[in-house]
Computed example of a mutant assay.
Amino acid sequence: MLGTIWCLHGAVGMAEDWRGFAVPGWAVKRVDLWRFLDCCPMPLEAFGKALNEEAAAVSGRKVLLGYSMGGRLALHALLAGGPWQAAVIVSAHPGLEDAGERSARLARDAEWAAAALKGEWRDFLSRWNAQPVLGGDAALPDRMKLEPRRNPVARSFMDWSLGAQEPLGERLGEIRCPVLWVAGERDGKFRALAERAAGPEKWIAPGAGHRVPWESPEFPGIVGEFLERSVS
């Protein structure tokens, strides 16, 4: 095998989301992000360091792939150094630059946290998936399986909120490995963010929305091509 792709899922997601993802010649490690929040709070920066320490203890080449919330977490790991030979960032936000917008986002995410922790789980999922940004044709595992993990899911809305994240746009040049930025053609907001953040490597998935890895059949091949030319 050429190495391992460490895959980070999105908010209200599961490691199982990546079960169908495969790139020839590469192993895939589906990271359960909720275990990092099972016992106690963990800020974004602390997560980056913790993931890097875990990855550094494993031999072989390592590629980091993060989707949405997982993409933001991946950025923190990349900016903390770490053993990564390349990275793929999908549908991720580098950070809100306006303090007022960050404060408003924290307030909204506090509401999501309360709903995830105390509300009826099926109603919470219905509200979450009804958000326009998540519209699209993506086949994902049943999120009812996540109900036993509602505590860390709720905590993620606080610890890993976009409102709790310092804007990283000015720091992206510090990342030492090749990065492929990906967004969906129909995901206007995140397409614009990807085009602004990307260096020489970006891909806009034709016809896809926010959930590119599960909406675009081309995605694994694009990742494979990027790794072929980027990881020696």
Results as ranks from 00 to 15, higher is better:
95 G>F: 05
76 H>T: 14
205 A>Y: 04
94 P>E: 02
212 V>Y: 00
204 I>E: 11
168 L>V: 01
94 P>Y: 06
44 L>S: 08
59 S>C: 11
145 K>F: 14
215 E>T: 04
93 H>C: 04
13 G>I: 00
152 P>E: 11
191 R>W: 10
208 A>H: 02
105 R>T: 04
60 G>N: 04
6 W>A: 05
22 A>H: 13
84 W>K: 01
161 S>D: 06
117 L>S: 11
21 F>L: 03
64 L>W: 08
171 R>P: 06
121 W>L: 01
120 E>I: 08
31 V>E: 12
140 L>R: 13
101 E>L: 14
22 A>F: 10
178 P>M: 04
210 H>S: 10
170 E>M: 14
94 P>C: 08
149 R>G: 11
187 D>S: 07
226 F>R: 07
123 D>H: 12
82 G>Q: 02
74 A>P: 04
31 V>L: 09
89 I>Y: 01
214 W>Y: 03
100 G>Q: 09
208 A>N: 06
8 L>S: 07
78 L>K: 05
137 D>R: 15
7 C>H: 02
23 V>G: 03
10 G>I: 00
129 N>S: 15
227 L>A: 09
131 Q>K: 11
6 W>I: 04
178 P>R: 02
104 A>L: 13
169 G>W: 12
210 H>L: 06
136 G>H: 02
169 G>P: 06
119 G>I: 00
83 P>C: 03
178 P>D: 03
141 P>T: 00
232 S>N: 15
117 L>N: 07
202 K>W: 12
119 G>N: 01
231 V>K: 05
110 A>Q: 10
104 A>D: 12
29 K>D: 14
133 V>H: 06
56 A>Y: 09
10 G>H: 10
153 V>G: 04
215 E>N: 08
222 I>N: 08
1 M>Q: 12
127 R>P: 10
78 L>I: 01
96 L>H: 08
158 M>T: 15
102 R>N: 03
204 I>R: 06
